[in-house]
Design a protein around this nucleic acid. Structure first.
Length: 470
RNA sequence: GGCGCCGUGGCGGAGUGGUUACGCAGCGGUCUGCAAAACCGCGUACGCCGGUUCAAUUCCGGCCGGCGCCUCCA
């Protein structure tokens, strides 16, 4: 039984989809005005795994993840850069795709942009005005009236009165209630705008998700996900807008991933302690993007995860161990699921417990290593199972030798010390010759030389020598 | 101030009312010309104080410590 922790109820619930065998899900994407950092990556990977696992469990999944391509930050940044808004968003959308592709995050089935759904945004806003959930404020902006929506606060577990008491929002004369939020914003001169019954303007942030889910998934769908920081007010506001506009329940399950921390503090643009995906991948500490993905899967998606170089290095070591097990083994074409698959499924069924699922992969690696050279068929079967389960998490699909021979420093075949693959092979051949003539002093000298360059050798019983970068 | 989360062995990180998480590192061993990798063995950890219980790291209460949301934020 697949259980999902539903923020709405605060507990794990069995997944019961609106339509049997079908999951429709929506995940909040990024605002494309800058490069993505590790926190963005975590959220995308968490839901990428949710999506992959649901598909593995036999569901037909429709996965939507939006792009916010119009908002205050974008306008501000474009102005600072002196470039058109569209040029800015196009540039960072491309960068985002590049980063996410490298991390093995599957492209969504639909990747809507806010600016492509303006008609629905306008009609929903009109509908909310018609139903008295929204009003045109004195400054011309259209505001949502939170007090009109009785269940407001259900997702975040707050009362309107509590929120008002601690409100840090600036007092805005145009608002009837300090917690009211904007649905449609009047354009200032020179800002991008779209025509509307309330004048030229642009959508507020929250309404775009309500509109895009409506256009692509309908009034009701199964899962809505995003970072914990979106729970309030963003998701709360989405619920208020959608439920009020359509009279339907909106999303059944709400999922929120925890933060990536640095020194125990949330990684965030505003704090300035963020690490860009591309910077980390090119830092000389990550041999392959898969290491970063593996690291982010090594703790449960709902809890915090602390980012540090030490942690990344540990992830590299652990992933290398899994790849080492797969080396020298040809995965079987036909195989039967072992107890590892049972453990894997039990772990993933329990609210996508990836660290527990990873333990099942570790067990398989151990079994492969034990079977190697003793029972080739057994090793081959376990290898096939390991790769198969790895694919559900989006890991272990590379060639083991290629992965192990990659250098963190060069992100490719050459290490910082400059030893190319062919140079390594040559030295290994020279060492083999020395060993054959029992000139161990010379063979050890060559091995030390390679070790200096970060190359670790492994002599096999049959005389072959495998190498990897340490 | 309001709401909420967390505190596990050297590190990371699951989990459970009584029985092994798992990985890394460390120690010992097997293998090896020597290594490396692998395999075998080794660590009785659950913030503090009470309570419930035959039994609590696991349930309840309090405390201390850390964090998050309440404003843009994955």
């Amino acid at each position: 039984m697949l259980q999902i922790f539903n923020t709405l109820s605060g507990r794990k619930e069995e997944l019961r989809t609106l339509e049997p065998g079908v999951v429709r899900m929506y995940v909040c994407g990024d605002t494309v005005y800058d490069y993505c950092h590790i926190g963005h990556a975590r959220s995308k990977i968490a839901f990428d795994v949710v999506r992959r696992y649901l598909a593995y469990r036999g569901y037909k999944v429709t996965f939507v993840r939006n792009i916010t391509d119009i908002d205050d930050k974008i306008i501000k940044r474009a102005a600072e850069n002196g470039e058109p808004v569209q040029a800015l968003t196009a540039r960072f959308t491309a960068a985002m795709h590049e980063d996410y592709d490298r991390l093995g995050i599957l492209r969504p089935d639909f990747e809507p942009k806010a600016t492509e759904h303006i008609p629905t945004i306008v009609s929903m806003t009109q509908s909310l005005i018609d139903k008295n959930y929204a009003y045109v404020a004195s400054d011309g902006d259209v505001m949502y009236s939170v007090s009109a929506f009785k269940p407001y606060g259900q997702l975040s577990g707050r009362q309107l009165s509590d929120l008002r008491a601690g409100a840090r929002v600036a007092v805005d004369e145009a608002k009837r209630d300090p917690l009211d939020f904007v649905l449609w914003k009047q354009a200032k001169p020179g800002e991008p705008s779209w025509p509307s019954p309330w004048g030229a303007g642009r959508p507020g942030w929250h309404i775009e998700c309500s509109a895009m889910t409506l256009d692509l998934l309908g009034t009701r769908f199964d899962i809505h996900g995003g970072g914990l920081d979106l729970k309030f007010p963003h998701h709360e506001n989405e619920i208020a807008q959608s439920c009020a506009a359509t009279g339907e329940q909106f999303a059944t399950y709400w999922m929120h991933n925890g933060f990536v921390n640095v020194d125990n503090e949330k990684m965030a643009k505003s704090v300035g302690n963020f690490f860009l995906i591309r910077d980390v991948l090119g830092s000389g500490h990550v041999r392959d993007p898969e290491v970063l993905r593996f690291f982010l899967l090594s703790s449960h998606y709902r809890g915090p995860i602390n980012y540090s170089l030490t942690q990344i290095e540990q992830a590299d070591t652990t992933l290398a161990r899994l790849y080492s097990a797969l080396r020298d083994v040809v995965p079987a074409q036909r195989w039967e699921a072992s107890e590892a698959t049972g453990k894997f499924v039990a772990a993933m069924d329990d609210d996508f417990n990836t660290p527990d699922a990873l333990a099942a992969l570790q067990w398989l690696a151990g079994e492969i290593n034990k079977a190697k050279g003793v029972d080739a068929a057994r090793a081959a079967a376990f290898a096939a199972e390991l790769k198969h389960l790895g694919s559900v998490l989006g890991v272990l699909q590379a060639s083991p030798a290629a992965f192990l021979q990659k250098s963190a420093k060069g992100q490719g075949t050459e290490s910082a010390s400059g030893l190319s693959e062919s140079a390594v092979e040559e030295l290994i051949a020279a060492r083999a010759a020395a060993r054959k003539s029992r000139n161990f002093k010379e063979s050890d000298r060559i091995r030390d030389q390679l070790a200096q360059a970060g190359i670790v050798l492994e002599d096999k019983p049959d005389g072959a020598t495998l190498w990897r970068r340490g």
